[in-house]
Each structure stands twice: as structure tokens, then as C-alpha cells.
Design a protein around this nucleic acid. Structure first.
Length: 839
RNA sequence: GCCGAAGUGGCGGAAUUGGCAGACGCGCUAGCUUCAGGUGCUAGUGUUCGCAAGGAUGUGGGGGUUCGAAUCCCCCCUUCGGCACCA
């Protein structure tokens, strides 16, 4: 017995170099029907990766390698989501320029990825902070601008009065500035938006076509888009020609309107109160509400407040005078910013009416009894369905039936119409930050807002800037950048100094991989149509809404522009769970990160990969246990030792194939398990990505192989049956190594070579199984009495029911238990059990 | 509040057209090996009663359907995630 040591460090280096040299993961533009685009979400270069990140890349690598063995041409690219706030914060904190910092981090992380043995086509690597990349991000902005899908309007930003700077949402913690704990205020700035709301219906409808997406992600997106059906109703402003439209999902309650609420931002307010006795108090109220943070204003717990404007509107269905209020719970961003308030049937309106002593008018009563609700006795709004009352010609109608009829009535009378509202807001892409792609816009005094011509792209991000935070974008201070000339008239003009949200960068990177080196276009349409949509996208659930929705939106824009022939970017989506340590998500700030380099040093990358996959089903969160790693290491050693201990035999004894007629009972059983294992691993990968159970089944097989091979070396190798046994052993080990190859590629390549094959194992086809050999000759059957196991019998698997019954009746234990009892019923489940029901 | 996912040994987890609960692994216990061990090997390991054979009990809780329920139905509890004054 000559055992080589399992030197994982040497082996892993050897095969990483081999794959790089042989170009296992390099693909050119040509691809046939057998293409497979496997994409992992590109990382933000934060500095170092922890084992939690590893899960994403390891899962992706398993899929890529499995598909390669199944004969697919696999595209597996990688890149860097390299713009973003942390790099800028690091610059403020320790003066390192974001570009240097980012570059260093990418270098470090690239080494880490390579150490894991995860395979990518590095020739296609992209980094979103490089001009070659963000030139095309800017080009996308121009395309949207041309289509009227990019526009500018005033919008609130988080403002820290103490730091005198704009804060990103993630810098606001519980309403306080994360740096100085000052309370954050809202401030209005002119900012750029993408008109994603135009696509709301399509983004919602097309979710139905995404069969390969997790239900919960689709549900989250549907909730985010938030479609609601109802009506828009015009209320006439008393003593004027003006109308104030409002949206409602409950047109059936129109007869119960007792006041109307306007959002404090509603543009009509100022002229309504201009010069009236209410002006001062209303303006004060608006100022106060606007000073509140978003959280304060929009959480359910906040007390409803309002103020009367002194004006009235007219309810178009019954001409009642309805007092017009301004209230903090009406939102300008939803519907029309005006709410027809029905306190009897809406809880918010109810609370408001109680507080300000406004009338409550019941227009729906519960179905099934004649008792009328009494508004004086109500302590909450009646929001359920019921029957119309006090509703003129609609009285007596069930309210659900009344809704369409009432809307028809509005339309006939010209006072309102059917309307659909979405919760989805337009995408605010302006960031008052340095480390992002500059928005390619120039402001000219005579020509106005002018897009930078395509030929002038990229608008380069200047290198020399001051990072001290102050009121505006850092780019504002760079005169050479700001001062420009108008592309239209050639006069002096100023550049836009905001940069784009990093979600813009990441909304199209999967297209750039197709043409990463092309400096004439963002991507080649023909090639993109060949490779996309992405066959498998893998990433964290934290991107379930924004990143995926934005990518879908951009894809639809390109589709409409006929740049691509598909309108959904990701055919299949897999969201892996987080790795938890000490009860919390692994993160630098919590100090619970496990450094993958230490694990790799001690046990090797394959052990780390195996443990990461074995820990739990990949979609579920999993607790990392440092001690658990040893189990995976032991398994790989056991596999290594078993194979290397037979190395000399493999060389000497020719592979004469497998001869079933020479099988002993044990050999037949082992052969059977080899086939069961192939079937199990294949199905686990294909059907449910249950890598943990796939690995467990190979562990079982190896346990069996070790028992089988224990005394094989001492046998007489002149005997045909012994040689046949040896070849079954060889087959079992080759199979184990093959089905493990996607999980632990380095050791698999090495053992494949030791088993006498030429590299690479990834050019060997995925094993197939022999269904016929899986059926067992004999099965153990459970014998129950009244559902409790009383005995077990080993019987031929094709036994007749009569033979089985007589065997059961001969069984000693069964007879003991049957004494003095009568069999009422016998249930036989073939190959499983017999249940005797007795009294 | 609404929507969704989940609850199984000391731990991670297996078992779903209803059919032996706890595969596989960690940990633990005992023994062997070792100068030594965060090594390797062997055996055992849900709980409980019993010297044992064997019995009882057991998948968050309570009901139900069934010969038989972790699995199906009803009610409840807990945890996690998303949305949350969206008219």
C-alpha cells in the first residue's frame, strides 16, 4: 500500500493553472444551440470576500461545471460593480483616492476568487468604474433621454444640517445621520429620473412569463409595483371653474364623502388660501410637516393631523359641500395627491374625522342583517363588503356589484373615469456624489438642457477632487469639469455635476460581457441575441426588487429600440440564502466574518467548497460552523486514501469491463448503489439544486466502497471474479470522482489522473445510470399490527401477495402479537409494508 | 396590519403522489492507535422505563381525516423576510 499524501495546496494550484492554460472557461462569440449563459451577480469590490460571499460563486461554479460536463458551451463571466459610496467614504476617512482603493480591492478579490477554483472567462472582465464601461452607461442615459424616458424634476433628498451634505438612504439610520447623529431633514433639489412607471403594467404582466423565477421574488416585485384599480373622480372647487381630481379604489363609497384631504405638497393649495384668514396657519402646518423625515411622516403609527383650508369642493354625485383639508397622511406621490375621505369606511379617514369632529356618513351596511350601523357607536371604520345605503339609485346593491356601475355612472355624467394606479415611482438616478458615472448633460443659457453628443462620450470623471463633504456634489468644485461649451450653439455652458445611481451601472452589465472589448458600441446586437437571455442567474435575495426590476426595465427599453430580440434578461433566477454566523448575517461591521483564506490554507479550497454546499440546501440561510468543516475534509481524505491505496493495482490490472454474471451478492449490491448514486446526484442537481443531499449520497457510496474494498487486496488476482470485483471497484471510484467534479474540481482532476485518465475530467461526459440494475432482488418489508412495527421480513421483491401473507402468518413475533386477536383487515403496500388491523 | 417562507435530536440537516422519523455530517461517549493531539480507526448515540429481551413515547401546540400523518384539512403559537397612512 503506497499512500501519497493529499497535498491540496499543490493540487489546487496545479489544476487552476491547467484550466487557465487550457481555456476551460474561455468562449468565443460563436455559439450554437447548446449555449448556456451562467451568471453570478457581480461583486462590489469591498476589499475582501468572506465565506458567505463564497456561496454565490461556488454555486455558480457548480452549475457551470456540471453544464460543461453535460456538453454545453458555457459562458461564465465576472466583473466588478465598482462605483459606489463606500469607496468615497474611504477617501474621506483616509484620503485614498476611490480609483486607487477600488483597483487594489479588485486585485485582492480576484486572487481570492481564483483560490476558490471558481472558473470564469477573465477575458470578458468588466469594471463599471472604467471609462470603457461607463461611457456606455452614459450612452444608455442618452438613449433614455431621446425616448423621453429621462427627465428632470424637483425631489426631496436627505439633508444633514450639521454636515451640510446630502445623504444617501443608507447613510440615514433611524432618521439620524450615520456620521454625526443629527436629525435628517428633507430638502428639494432638481434631480434626474428614469420613467420606469411607463413600464409598470408590462413589468407586472411579464412576471407571469418568468417560470424560472422563485415565486417569492415575483410576489415581492408585484407588491412593489403595487397595481390598484379604481376611479378618478373630479370634485369641483366651489365658486370656481377648477376641479380637483382624486383617485379612489372605493368608488362605491362616493356618497359617504364628508371631507377631502390634500397632500401638503399639493400645488393647488397656495392659490386656494392666498390672502385668506387661513393662509398663515395652513402655511405653518405645511412647513412643519415638511420638516419631518420620511419615516416620521409615512409610518402607520404617526398621528393623523390636518388643517382646514376654508374652502369647499362639491361632491359630484349629490352636490354636497365637502370641506377641503390639508393632512399629513395624504401623499403627493400617490394618485393625485388628493383623497376623498370616507370616514365610515376607511380607518385613516375615520381617525381623522374623530380627531377633528368631522361628520361620519354610513353608505355600506353589513350583509345578512338589517341592522344599520350607527356612526356614534363605531370605534373603527367598517371596511368590509356589504350593501349600499344612502346611495341614491344604488341603494340595496351589494357594494362589489355597485363599483363598476358607479364608475359607468361617472363616465356617463363626465365626472370621472376608470383609472389604474401604481405604487411604483419613477427611478431617481441623480446622486450628489463623486464616485459614479457623470450624467451626460450640459446646461446652456440660451439652448437649455442639452445632452452631450454621443461622439463626445465618455464624460470623464475628473481625477483631482476635494472629498470633504459639503452641500453639493464634489464635482461642483472642479472648474475644468463644470465649465464647458454648449454642443448646440458653442457658447459657454455648465455641466451637470450629479452622477448616476450605481443601479444604473448594474442594470445592463450582463450585456456588456458579450462585447466587453468593443469600443464602438455598448454590445453587439447579434451576439447578444445569441447568448441571451441569461440561462441561469444566481445571486442574493437582497436584490429581489431593485436590481432585478431595473434590469428588466432597461432590457425592455432596448427591446423597444430593437437593439435586442428578447424582453426579459434572466430566464432562470436562483436566490441563495445567506451564511449566518453567531445568529447574524456575516458582515465586517458585526465582526463575525470567517476568512476563506484561512480555511483554504488549512484544509484546501475543495474542502471549503464541499462544506459550503453540504451545509444546507442552497436557497436556505445556513449557520456556518467552523468545526463542521472537518467533516468535509475527512470525506475528501477518505476518497483520496481509498483511490491512492489502489493506484498500483489500477496500473497493473487491465480494465476488462464489468461482467454481471460474475457478480457475488456484495458486488451486485455495490453495482446497484453506483447506479443509484448517479441517478440521485443527477436528479438532485437537475430538479432541485439539492447539492447537500447529492453529496450525502456520494458519502454513502464511499462508505460502502470502503467496506467492499477492505479485503480485496488480499485476494487472488488470478481469479476472474476477483478481477471483475476490482473493476467494479474501479467503476465505483471513477463514478464518485466524476459526480463530485462540479463540487470539488481540483481533487477530482487529480484523482481522475491517478485513475489512469488523461485530463481533463471536464471533457469526460457526465455518467449515465443503468435503470435495470437499480431494482433490488430482495426487499426488507415492515410488518405492522395496527400501524406499529412488530416485525421485519426480507422477501423477494416480486413476491405474490398470497406468498407474502403466508410468510407473515408464519412469523414468530407476529404470532406472539396476534394471540387472542382477530384480523379485521390486511393492507399490503408492495415492497414497503404489511399492516394487519386487529381487534 | 397585509403578503410570503419556515418550525424535526445537543447542532447543520434527511425523509412529500400519506407507508420503518432522524439518511449524511458535526458534536458527544467508550475502546484502540499515538511521545503527544483540535490526528486516525472501531463501536454507540432522539427521549424514557428496563440488567436484558423488549416496551412506551416522539417532527412548535390543539383538534380532525385515515388501517397508517413530519407529510392532508381546521384552529392557534413562535421565528425570519418583504411591504406598510398607497386612498
Amino acid at each position: 500500500m503506497s499512500n501519497k499524501e493529499y497535498n491540496f495546496t499543490e493540487i489546487e494550484k496545479k489544476w487552476q493553472d491547467f484550466w487557465e492554460g487550457s481555456g476551460l472557461f474561455r468562449v468565443d462569440e460563436d455559439c450554437d444551440k447548446n449555449k448556456f449563459y451562467c451568471l453570478v451577480m457581480f461583486p462590489y469590490p469591498s476589499g475582501t470576500l468572506h465565506v458567505g460571499h463564497g456561496r454565490n460563486y461556488i454555486i455558480g461554479d457548480v452549475v457551470s461545471r456540471y453544464k460543461i460536463m453535460k456538453g454545453f458551451r458555457v459562458l461564465s463571466p465576472i466583473g466588478w460593480d465598482a462605483f459606489g459610496l463606500p469607496a468615497e467614504n474611504a477617501a474621506i476617512a483616509n484620503g485614498i483616492h476611490p480609483s486607487i482603493n477600488t483597483e487594489n480591492n479588485i486585485k485582492k478579490m480576484k486572487v481570492q476568487l481564483e483560490r476558490w477554483g471558481v472558473g470564469y472567462d477573465w477575458d470578458r472582465e468588466v469594471a463599471s468604474c472604467e471609462p470603457d464601461y461607463y461611457k456606455w452607461t452614459q450612452w444608455i442615459f442618452l438613449k433614455l433621454f431621446e425616448q423621453n424616458l429621462a427627465y428632470k424634476k424637483k425631489a426631496a433628498v436627505n439633508w444633514c444640517p450639521s454636515c451640510a451634505t446630502v445623504l444617501a438612504n443608507e447613510q440615514v439610520v433611524n432618521d439620524l445621520c450615520e456620521r454625526c447623529d443629527t436629525k435628517v431633514k428633507q430638502r428639494d433639489l432638481e434631480q434626474w429620473f428614469f420613467k420606469i412607471s411607463n413600464f409598470a403594467q408590462r413589468l407586472l404582466d411579464d412576471l407571469k412569463t418568468l417560470d424560472g423565477w422563485p415565486e417569492r421574488v415575483k410576489t415581492m416585485q408585484a407588491n412593489w409595483i403595487g397595481r390598484s384599480e379604481g376611479a378618478k373622480i373630479n370634485f369641483k372647487l366651489e365658486e370656481t371653474d377648477k376641479t380637483i381630481p382624486c383617485f379612489t379604489t372605493r368608488p362605491d363609497t362616493i356618497f359617504g364623502v364628508t371631507f377631502m384631504s390634500l397632500a401638503p405638497e399639493h400645488p393647488v393649495i397656495r392659490e386656494l388660501i392666498n390672502g385668506t384668514e387661513h393662509e398663515k396657519s395652513v402655511l405653518e402646518f405645511i412647513d412643519r410637516v415638511r420638516g419631518q423625515s420620511t419615516i416620521e411622516r409615512t409610518s402607520e403609527g404617526t398621528e393623523k393631523e390636518g388643517i382646514f383650508t376654508g374652502r369647499y369642493v362639491i361632491n359630484p354625485v349629490n352636490s354636497e359641500r365637502v370641506p377641503l383639508w390639508v393632512s399629513n397622511y395624504a401623499l403627493m406621490g400617490y394618485g393625485t395627491g388628493a383623497v376623498m375621505a370616507v370616514p365610515a369606511h376607511d380607518q385613516r379617514d375615520f381617525e381623522f374625522a374623530k380627531k377633528y369632529n368631522l361628520p361620519i356618513k354610513i353608505v355600506i351596511r353589513p350583509t345578512g342583517n338589517d341592522t344599520m350601523l350607527n356612526h356614534e357607536e363605531m370605534d373603527e371604520a367598517y371596511v368590509e363588503d356589504g350593501v349600499q345605503v344612502n346611495s341614491d339609485r344604488f341603494d340595496g346593491m351589494p357594494n362589489r356589484e355597485a363599483i363598476p356601475k358607479i364608475i359607468n355612472f361617472f363616465e356617463e355624467k363626465g365626472i370621472g373615469e376608470r383609472n389604474i394606479n401604481f405604487r411604483l415611482r419613477d427611478w431617481l438616478i441623480s446622486r450628489q456624489r463623486y464616485w459614479g458615472a457623470p450624467i451626460p448633460i450640459i446646461y446652456c443659457e440660451s439652448c437649455g438642457t442639452v445632452p452631450v453628443p454621443e461622439k463626445d462620450l465618455p464624460v470623464l470623471l475628473p481625477e483631482k477632487v476635494e472629498f470633504k463633504p459639503h452641500g453639493k456634489s464634489p464635482l461642483d468644485d472642479v472648474d475644468e469639469f463644470v465649465n464647458s461649451t454648449c454642443p448646440k450653439c458653442g457658447g459657454s455652458a455648465k455641466r451637470e455635476t450629479d452622477t448616476m445611481d450605481t443601479f444604473v451601472d448594474s442594470s445592463w452589465y450582463y450585456l456588456r460581457y458579450i462585447s466587453s472589448k468593443d469600443n464602438t458600441q455598448a454590445f453587439d446586437s447579434e451576439d447578444a441575441n445569441k447568448w441571451l437571455p441569461v440561462d441561469q442567474y444566481i445571486g442574493g435575495i437582497e436584490h429581489a426588487i431593485l436590481h432585478l426590476l431595473y434590469s428588466r426595465f432597461i432590457t425592455k427599453v432596448f427591446y423597444d429600440l430593437k437593439l435586442i430580440n428578447f424582453d426579459e434578461p434572466f430566464k432562470n433566477l436562483f436566490t441563495q440564502g445567506m451564511i449566518i454566523k453567531d445568529g447574524a448575517k456575516m458582515s465586517k461591521s458585526k465582526g463575525n466574518v470567517v476568512n476563506p483564506d484561512l480555511i483554504t490554507e488549512k484544509y484546501g479550497a475543495d474542502t471549503q467548497r464541499l462544506y459550503t454546499l453540504f451545509i444546507a440546501p442552497p436557497q436556505r440561510d445556513a449557520e456556518w460552523n467552523d468545526r463542521g468543516v472537518i467533516g468535509s475534509y475527512r470525506f475528501l481524505n477518505k476518497l483520496w486514501n481509498t483511490i491512492t491505496s489502489f493506484e498500483e493495482y489500477f496500473k497493473k490490472i487491465p480494465d476488462a469491463g464489468i461482467k454481471p454474471d460474475l457478480f457475488s451478492k456484495e458486488t451486485k449490491e455495490l453495482y446497484r448503489y453506483i447506479n443509484i448514486t448517479i441517478k440521485k446526484v443527477t436528479e438532485d442537481i437537475e430538479k432541485s439544486w439539492s447539492f447537500n443531499t447529492a453529496i450525502a449520497s456520494v458519502m454513502e457510496l464511499l462508505n460502502m466502497v470502503v467496506d467492499f474494498s477492505a479485503d480485496l487486496r488480499d485476494k487472488d488476482f488470478n481469479e476472474e471474479a476477483v478481477i471483475n470485483d476490482f473493476n467494479v471497484l474501479r467503476h465505483s471510484l471513477e463514478t464518485s470522482v466524476k459526480v463530485l467534479a462540479p463540487f470539488v474540481p481540483h481533487i477530482s482532476e487529480e484523482l481522475w489522473e491517478i485513475l489512469g485518465h488523461n485530463p481533463s475530467i471536464f471533457s469526460a461526459p457526465w455518467p449515465t445510470y443503468d435503470e435495470g440494475s437499480i431494482a433490488a432482488d430482495q426487499v426488507e418489508m415492515v410488518i405492522q399490527i395496527n400501524g406499529k412495527v412488530r416485525s421485519k421480513l426480507v422477501v423477494p421483491s416480486e413476491i405474490t401477495e398470497d406468498d407474502l401473507k403466508s410468510l407473515v402468518m408464519d412469523d414468530k413475533k407476529i404470532n406472539e402479537n396476534l394471540e387472542g386477536k382477530k384480523i379485521v383487515k390486511t393492507i399490503v403496500v408492495p415492497k414497503k409494508l404489511v399492516n394487519l388491523v386487529v381487534r
